[in-house]
Amino acid sequence: MTERRTLQTEQISGHPGPVPGMGMQRNLEVCKLIDATTCIGCKACEVACVEWNDLPFQPTTFDNTYQTMPETNWNYWNLIKFREHQREDGTLMWLMRKDQCMHCADPGCLAACPADGAIVKYANGIVDFHQENCIGCEFCVSGCPFNIPKFNPATKKVYKCTLCSDRVGQGLEPACIKACPTGCLHFGTKEDMKMLAETRAKQLRDVSGFKDAGVYDPESIGGTHVIYVLHDAKNPELYSGLPKDPSIPFAYKAWKSIFKPLGLIGATLGFVGVVFHYVFEGPKREQPEVPPPKPEPPAGRKEL
């Protein structure tokens, strides 16, 4: 995919040397905001995801729920999870959470992956799988605290939500965002989305009587690039098992630390990537197209 190349890479799985371009440029982080308190579980986002990513039809079976299938799948990356919850005061909540890759700041999948270049993290926060480099070991599956990457036995590769890196690379918002009829999905810079999320959470606390309303952006993994507004941020597990303090298995952390210094060395090499257009309206930066594996001089056009 040529579009991916317009994103600046920050971390590369199983990469023996420095990460090209790393640190040359302060990229704005992107973020998807999911307001779980105005989601009605209509699944328009599921349809948009399947259509945009051209995912093949997956026969489904009824499983005692409104949920399309039990978990995301290699060909179904965006799934609304439905969970019934009875509160202490006896009232019921039907919690609907749009489940997909969280695009962790500290991605467990990437830490776990031994294949060079199979998983990359872009400077804007998107964690993307490059199936051409995937060796099908499924370590990423066990490295993910959110149970997101899924193995396709036919191709022997692992797949997941890309945060529509191809669209983002073209300056567009992810396909799910534009599909939402109630406007519970937003996309922008992490900073803006955090602010929007906090404002909404405050409204829920002050006006709607959800005293524990808050924003899910777990610090234990350095935050995520998909954040939620929850009625009860103290108990994220209620939302179909959203982990309170997600963590990467220790083994993978140790592994990762070996490569970390190398990554920092890479920072001295020149590479300039692209900030996606959505944030163009903010600070401007230079961004010629550069394919990650082939180093090019930094062009030195950092205006402003």
Partner: peptide, 12 residues
Amino acid sequence: INRGTLCPKGSS
């Protein structure tokens, strides 16, 4: 009314 949005039925 819909301002460009569609539900899962409309999307298909």
